[in-house]
Computed example of a mutant assay.
Amino acid sequence: MIRKTLLALVVLTLLALGGLYAWGLSIPATTKAERVVQFAATPEQVHARISDVRGQQEWRSDIGKVEVSGDGQRWAEFPDDGSTLTFRLIESRHATTFAITYKSSVGFEGLWRAELEPKGNGTQGLFVEEVTIPKPLLRGIGRLANPSGQHLDLYLKDLRRVTGSQ
Rank of each mutant, 00 (worst) to 15 (best):
V10Q: 08
V11K: 03
T13K: 01
T13H: 08
L14V: 13
L14W: 00
L15H: 04
L15D: 06
L15I: 09
A16S: 11
A16F: 11
A16N: 05
L17R: 05
G18I: 02
L20G: 01
Y21Q: 09
Y21R: 10
W23Q: 09
W23F: 14
W23M: 12
W23G: 08
L25G: 07
L25T: 09
I27W: 08
I27E: 12
P28G: 05
P28H: 11
P28R: 09
T31R: 14
K32M: 14
V37N: 12
V37K: 13
V37R: 13
F39E: 05
T42C: 09
T42F: 06
T42R: 15
P43F: 04
P43I: 02
E44T: 06
Q45V: 06
Q45D: 10
Q45R: 09
H47R: 01
H47S: 10
H47T: 05
R49P: 01
R49Q: 13
I50V: 02
S51G: 11
V53T: 06
V53E: 07
R54P: 01
R54H: 09
R54Y: 00
R54V: 10
R54S: 14
G55S: 03
G55H: 01
G55P: 01
E58V: 10
E58D: 15
W59V: 00
W59F: 04
R60S: 12
S61T: 12
S61L: 10
K65A: 14
E67T: 13
E67W: 07
V68N: 08
S69E: 14
D71F: 03
D71K: 04
Q73D: 07
Q73I: 00
A76F: 08
E77S: 10
E77C: 05
P79D: 09
D80T: 14
G82P: 06
T84V: 15
T84H: 04
L85S: 10
F87K: 00
L89G: 01
S92E: 02
S92Q: 06
A95H: 01
T96F: 03
T96M: 05
T97E: 12
F98G: 08
I100A: 11
I100T: 15
Y102W: 14
S104W: 01
S104R: 04
V106D: 13
V106N: 10
V106P: 10
G107N: 07
G107K: 07
E109R: 14
E109S: 14
W112M: 06
R113G: 05
A114Y: 14
A114T: 08
A114W: 14
E115R: 11
L116V: 03
P118R: 13
K119A: 13
G120R: 03
N121V: 00
G122C: 07
G122Y: 02
Q124P: 03
Q124S: 13
G125D: 01
